[in-house]
Design a binder for these strands. Structure first.
Lengths: 346, 346
DNA sequence: CTGAAAGCGCTAACAT
DNA sequence: ATGTTAGCGCTTTCAG
């Protein structure tokens, strides 16, 4: 397709700087064996000419690849959009290019994307999004990735623990605990959970946090309705419908992410159920619109943009002895969608 | 079980199939000049061995690049996230990889990104987002891109007209007209506009639509306050502050995109100004959260996801004689943020 | 410290 | 129809 790029090659820079190809290469790669003086001259000339190495030639010749592959569920999901924004932000600074693909929360498709990225010789692969409770798929992904890592590829994951790679781990359990404790503190006891697919690690972890908070108040998950639907807005709507129909006395709904919470709020609005007067609602993630919803959403803030950056930072460092883990921290953000439990004591 | 073997080269496949390198290359590329029989044998051997071509070698040697570069303002802006989602969706189907970079709405940075993408030998470049009213920057971008296109690169743009490339053109003017006519129809006359930077084509076009609707009602843009701030949420907030302070009798605010509209709504909420009772608000784009805001936002729907797909479709077709243009259509979505003008007859 | 030269794996002219 | 060969632009020995 595209034949000539800028047509500017390393050899041109070399000539212009009055040095050989090899020296120019060394200078720009910051390798040993060039005097500071010459190296600086070369770098300056390269700069002036706006030289950018041809990554294909570079990689083919055995150099490092400068593209990072990023796999997300969907970029047009705000959670992943923010993560992607973080990755791209740091990548820009490092002059790296980011290739984004969608996993669609389908383990098979995700595996295909990983393979594709490897075949394209991405030097770094970042996988964002929940792992699956699907041992076979996970094992295969792990096998492929560990082969890739053995070959020098760097991998970082966001929000999954079982992949033998450096990981950014969102505070899912602690966050689930925080948000549940908040509700319990407001006096709510008839709480329902709008959860995503039960096979997603994220769902499992957040549920664990919910469960532990309940336990501290002498309750158990078994006491409350947990509705598993899709981990997206529409799932929140249908979950709410079910909760309303089957457990009308519910006073609070925990949505396991903000997308679902938006669906929950929408359905409550349609049904004319006041929030938080008759029903409190909490979400999880604090996507940027959470503050603008009707009413503004109480949720757990996860630093998505930073998470993206952190993942790339991890991947940029040389591999350690074992997988590194980097927790994200979290913050309970109380807004207008939660209030005291209505007094329905008798 | 075929496993993509690094170290497995085309020459190995060729030997194994008892043909020459060139023949194997032709067979796998589906090019002319190989008997069906031989071609099939080669393909089968390649399959058995799990051969995957090295894209770097392929591209370096002048083959087609399978990556498409996408430049957006920011992926974590919902408007661009949806466009990106559309591009990636189609790219996935075509087994293409998408490289995303941020322009940050800075002409200089955008130009740098274009150059970077070209240097990376992206076969296709898609630029989403408004052009700038900056002749020098635009001219330079056009020059670089036309060189790229002359070399066989394909370019498609979304929402800018002055780049000599195939374009997807959002119905900015018609949409601006529609939304303004809606307000006028509700009896509003004291209308203010919260606009983005005056140099953005998108802003200019949408304003033109606003102006034409006003004209039909015997009004003119000069009659109303137009506040230019940043084309993002925060800009909507500050614009609203100014409008409230300087034109307290305003009954409706036109925000030139949904992000700004969100800021407008937020500020009105803070000030305790009822929407739509005391103030109507309209946005533009219909990002997916527009329906979930407080109150839900009246806006103009643009098919962002399709726009992304269309752009890639255009780029995938061979270049035409001249630049193709593809309008998007639009749809006025009336929700709860607009109502009749309050009766302040004096 | 620097330069010359040998590939990396593939495509595409050029031969046969 | 098939084979031979010259690069693509870079990194990396290996000489000097």
């Amino acid at each position: 397709m595209p034949k000539p790029g800028p047509g500017l090659r390393l050899i041109d820079v070399a000539h212009r700087a009055g040095v050989s190809l090899a020296t120019a290469s060394r200078a720009l790669a910051g390798r040993e064996g060039v005097s500071e003086e010459v190296a600086n001259r070369v770098r300056q000339v390269a700069d002036e000419l706006g030289y950018v190495a041809n990554p294909f030639a570079r990689t083919l010749a055995g150099g490092a690849s400068t593209t990072v592959g990023l796999i997300v569920h969907q970029v047009d999901d705000p959670y992943f959009a923010e993560i992607a924004g973080g990755v791209i932000g740091l990548a820009d600074e490092q002059r790296l290019l980011v290739q984004i693909c969608h996993s669609g929360r389908d383990p098979g498709h995700e595996l295909r994307q990983i393979r594709h990225l490897i075949a394209q010789r991405a030097g770094i692969i970042i996988i964002a999004g929940s792992g699956y409770d699907d041992p076979r798929a996970e094992a295969e992904a792990e096998a492929v990735l560990s082969g890739y890592q053995r070959g020098g590829g760097r991998v970082a994951v966001i929000g999954r623990h079982a992949l033998g790679a450096d990981a950014v781990l969102p505070d899912n359990e602690a966050g689930g605990h925080a948000v549940t404790a908040h509700l319990l503190g407001l006096g709510h006891r008839r709480i329902a959970v709008a959860a995503g697919a039960p096979g997603l690690n994220t769902v499992i972890d957040r549920m664990a946090g919910v469960a532990s908070a309940l336990r501290e108040h002498g309750l158990s998950l078994d006491d409350l309705p947990v509705v598993h639907t899709d981990f997206v807005r529409e799932g929140g709507r249908t979950a709410t419908e079910r909760i309303l129909a089957e457990h009308p006395s519910t006073t609070a709904i925990i949505a396991l992410n903000d997308a679902m919470a938006m669906g929950v709020l929408a359905m409550l609005r349609e049904r004319g159920i006041g929030v938080p007067t008759r029903m409190s609602v909490v979400g999880f993630d604090d996507v940027s619109v959470a503050a603008d919803l009707a009413p503004s959403l109480t949720t757990v803030r996860l630093p998505m943009i930073d998470m993206g950056r952190m993942a790339l930072e991890l991947a940029l460092e040389p591999a350690g002895a074992g997988p590194r883990r980097r927790p994200t921290g979290h913050q309970l953000i109380v807004r207008d969608s939660t209030g005291p439990a209505p007094d329905q004591s008798r």
